[in-house]
Simulated scan of single mutants.
Amino acid sequence: MANGKPLVGDMPVGGWIDRLAPAQMRPYLKLMRLDRPIGTWLLLLPGLWSITLAGTAGTWPDLWLMALFCVGAVVMRGAGCTVNDIADRDFDGRVARTAGRPIPSGDVSVRQAVLFLCLQLLTGLLILVQLNGTAIALGAGSLLLVGAYPFMKRVTYWPQVWLGLTFNWGALLGWVAVTGELSLPAVLMYVGGLFWTLGYDTIYAHQDKEDDVLIGVKSSALALGGRTVPFLFVVYGLAAALFVLAAWQAGVGWAFWPLAAAACLHLLWQAVDVDIDDGADCLAKFKSNRVFGWLFLAAAIGGRLTAGIPA
């Protein structure tokens, strides 16, 4: 069960896609993981943080730019899932949790998936060209990371590093979209996001460790084993420190600090409470990172609005 809905493998059944979408569209929407939005949130939030912190002191973030990033995150997360499922179709067909996905189940052919990927990338390009020239070039560069990610687990026990480099690109892109250039706060957020991803995706990978051993792919969960919890304290601590340092460098006001403290406490709770041998708990902790992201976004907005205002 997921949010009260039955599952076929890792796919919800009876959700909004099955109830509302035309039958011919359902496999493609599921290929994009539109019924499981946590990945979209984790891709989107660093960009929203960056747009907010790069804005003018005392003002709200650029809502049009945020809207573009929201649509872009949905499309590009879907494209990344499509690339991943094309590359992993043979692995997925051998694992009970993923055998029901659209490609290994036969609902979408590889040719159809490739054509759908091209459509998603074209849509992403149409969104990207709304930004300034430097942001367009930077955004295009992320495709190299997206394309290579599905193959990392074949060659390294640390594919989560590559995922961190990919999923936090928005921290760089958001800043450049606002200012036209890279600055230290954006770099600090990007590196912080890498450590954040190392934490949450290692938790996620513990769901699949038995299947990963059987099919011969690698993950940080297998590399760390019982050392995962101390690792989480380190990477989440580094992530929190770098995020806070980025915000301080961006000149946030007093409202940032209490909300940022609440966000950091959420990461601490994950590290203290996670049960790496309970797949359901690992999934719940992984999904809870959107709460961290929302809290930090609220902190960034509050900090930008109160910049220069005495407490």
Rank of each mutant, 00 (worst) to 15 (best):
A2S: 14
A2Y: 14
G4I: 09
G4V: 12
V8Y: 15
M11V: 13
D18Q: 13
D18H: 13
Q24R: 13
M25G: 13
R26N: 00
M32A: 09
M32K: 02
L42M: 05
I51E: 00
T52A: 09
L53M: 10
A54G: 09
A54H: 09
T56G: 11
A57T: 12
W60I: 15
W60K: 15
D62V: 13
D62F: 09
W64Y: 15
M66V: 13
C70E: 06
A73Y: 00
A73S: 04
V74C: 03
V75P: 07
R77F: 07
A79E: 03
T82G: 00
A87T: 11
A87V: 08
A87H: 03
D90E: 15
D90G: 15
D92G: 08
A96M: 06
A99G: 07
G100H: 13
R101L: 07
D107P: 09
S109G: 08
F116H: 00
L121Q: 02
L121R: 05
L122Q: 05
L125T: 05
I127V: 10
Q130M: 07
Q130H: 03
G133A: 02
T134L: 10
I136N: 01
L138Y: 06
G139R: 00
L144G: 03
L144E: 01
L145I: 02
Y149I: 01
P150A: 07
K153L: 12
K153A: 11
Y157L: 13
Q160D: 04
Q160P: 07
Q160W: 07
L163C: 04
G164A: 05
L165V: 08
T166W: 10
F167K: 10
F167N: 04
N168V: 06
W169G: 02
L173V: 14
W175F: 04
T179E: 07
E181K: 15
A186E: 09
V187K: 02
G193K: 04
G193C: 04
W196F: 11
G199C: 12
D201P: 13
V217N: 10
S219V: 05
S220V: 09
T228L: 08
Y236C: 13
A239H: 05
F243E: 12
W248T: 15
G251A: 14
V252N: 10
G253E: 14
F256S: 09
F256D: 08
A260Q: 06
A262N: 03
A263I: 07
L267Y: 05
L268E: 13
A271D: 04
D273M: 12
D275P: 07
I276H: 05
D278T: 07
G279A: 10
A280W: 09
C282A: 10
S288L: 06
R304Y: 12
T306P: 01
A307V: 04
G308M: 11
A311T: 09
